[in-house]
């Protein structure tokens, strides 16, 4: 036996029936997000811009955003992590990039991971080509998530100790300079030396540009195995390691959606701490939600959405990509600010 529905519920049902076409025509975020991601991908990676705009003078903006955008890439805009470690490598406290991380983190949380980050975009494209969002076991996911915090701690330990040494012992000579020299390519930042987007859009184009040198004057006689061997052996061990990491990154993104963001990304680790209390979150309507798990299936970060608060949830792994909102057949999810 069912009890009669209250008057306001009947009213809502009536309105819903009358304006059902509006619900069916609700905003889908993925086309907007993909467009935004593509635009920022060009800004950050910049390879295309360099070739398309002859007037591009190589000027780089001081504006940095909390995403993984390597300084090695040909981009007009950089990332806050690289800016932070680069400033630390000069013995300067990075007020500006850290301040930007705090401001963006407080307002948007990990929104930029989902909408702006070029590395995230590459992974989304790989998942898109694959055509399905796979998941790993909950326990494995929870264990490996901690890895990115450890890697971030190591990166900041290296850059932080270097900055302190430079600050106290001087930057030009002595202990500070000796420490910096001993760190070699890692002095500017551990992740500058290893990030896959730096390899994709900085190191590899540079190598390929240099590859033409083995052709010498372009004569057929210059195309020899000796010249090719010289060019290949000229590539450093660190670069080969970077290429290996890039291949691993692509393979991992194919197997697990947003693998880098989940388990490796240092910017993701930093922004995850802000995400927990950020102003932007997602609301789940308890009346509309039927616990169908469509949202959890669509989530590339494997966030346990149905276990979180209804009013507003800010899970540290949520990148606010809104894939759950698009996937929800009942329209129970919506962005909530503040």
């Amino acid at each position: 036996m069912t009890s009669p529905a209250p008057a306001d519920a009947q009213e809502k049902r009536g309105l819903s029936a009358r304006f059902g076409f509006l619900r069916r025509g609700r905003i889908h975020y993925w086309p907007i997000r993909t467009t935004v991601q593509l635009a920022f991908f060009l800004l950050f990676s910049g390879v295309a811009l360099v070739h398309l705009i002859p007037g591009f003078s190589g000027e780089r903006s001081w504006i940095v955003l909390p995403v993984l955008a390597s300084v090695k890439a040909q981009g007009a805009i950089g990332g806050t992590l690289d800016a932070t470690t680069v400033l630390l490598s000069q013995g300067i406290f990075p007020w500006l990039p850290i301040g930007i991380m705090f401001v963006v983190g407080a307002i948007l949380g990990r929104f930029m991971c989902g909408w702006i980050c070029p590395v995230g975009f590459v992974q989304d494209v790989i998942t898109g080509i694959k055509g399905r969002v796979d998941s790993v076991s909950k326990r494995t996911n929870q264990t490996w998530i901690k890895l990115k915090y450890g890697l971030t701690a190591i990166a900041f330990l290296v850059s932080g100790t270097l900055a302190l040494t430079l600050y106290y012992y001087g930057t030009s000579a002595g202990t500070g300079a000796a420490y910096r020299d001993s760190l070699g390519p890692f002095a500017s930042g551990l992740f500058i030396a290893f990030t896959p987007d730096g390899t994709m859009f900085g190191t590899l184009p540079q190598i390929l540009a240099g590859s033409w040198r083995f052709l010498g004057t372009g004569q057929l006689g210059d195309f020899t195995l000796t010249n090719l061997g010289k060019w290949i052996t000229g590539i450093s061990i660190l670069t080969w390691l970077n290429i290996l990491i890039l291949l691993g990154f692509i393979y991992a993104a194919w197997r697990i959606p947003r693998f880098w963001c989940r388990y490796i990304c240092p910017v993701g680790a930093i922004m995850a701490t802000f995400q927990k209390n950020s102003m932007l979150g997602i609301h789940r309507d308890p009346v509309k939600c039927a616990d169908c798990k469509e949202c959890e299936t669509a989530c590339p970060m494997q966030v346990p959405i149905l276990d979180l608060d209804f009013k507003k949830f800010n899970h540290s792994e949520c990148i606010l990509c809104m894939a759950c909102i698009d996937a929800c057949p009942a329209g129970a999810l919506s962005p909530k600010f503040p």
């Binding site: 190589g58 000027e59 780089r60 001081w62 090695k72 950089g78 800016a83 000069q90 500006l96």
Partner: peptide, 15 residues
């Protein structure tokens, strides 16, 4: 700090 930052970031542009 933006001037220092801009110079430092620019120094990484390989091309």
């Amino acid at each position: 700090q933006w001037t220092t930052l801009q110079d430092l970031l620019r120094s990484f542009l390989p091309f």
